[in-house]
Amino acid sequence: MNTGLDYKRDIELMSNDLTFLLKSSSTCKKIPKGTYLFQEGEDACELYLIQSGLFQISKLTMDGKELTMRISKKNDLIGELILFADKSKYMLSALALEESEVLVVKKSYLEKELTRKASLTLEFMRFFFLYFSVQAFLFRLGMLKGPGFPVFY
């Protein structure tokens, strides 16, 4: 579905240094179709960069219905973390819609590196501000289009 908007993938919004930090510290993981990479409420200790495949990012509503927030694909980050917080939990779930592969970045490593490199910390904060602003916009767009409007970008 085309929303009429042209979006850059998450990785395209980052500097080479931040991209290198994420990729150099990661391990590769294959996710079978129909498998959850993570689920809402689980301990959040990893961030994921999609290398191939599609993921449905969703949230459960108060009445137990699943609300699709977005569909993420290659070069998108998923598993948004509350960095520098003890016992953070995933706020959303990620279901593989097809055979997929992700790069796994450990929260502990990312926190350590960002603590050491102030310029990357500032960039990381700016990236996530922009990221969450876009997600909020897409959520509002979906709400305006009505229930069941999937946000593909």
Rank of each mutant, 00 (worst) to 15 (best):
E98C: 07
E66V: 15
L83P: 00
K106G: 00
M91N: 06
A96P: 00
I82C: 10
L97S: 03
M62K: 14
Y90L: 04
S93Y: 14
A96R: 11
K107G: 02
S108I: 12
V104I: 13
R70A: 15
S72R: 10
L103E: 03
G79D: 04
L97Y: 08
V104Y: 12
A96W: 11
S72V: 06
L77G: 00
V102P: 00
Y90A: 00
V105H: 05
A94E: 03
V104M: 08
M69H: 12
K89G: 00
D63K: 12
F84V: 06
K65D: 11
L67C: 10
S72L: 10
L77V: 07
E99S: 06
L67F: 14
M91P: 00
E101Y: 10
K74V: 08
N75G: 01
M62I: 13
T68Q: 09
E66Q: 13
L60Q: 11
E99G: 03
L67I: 12
L95F: 08
S88V: 08
L110N: 02
L81Y: 08
L110R: 04
L77N: 01
L83V: 06
E98W: 14
S100P: 01
K87D: 03
E99H: 08
I82P: 01
Y109C: 04
K87T: 06
L103A: 09
A96M: 09
A85T: 13
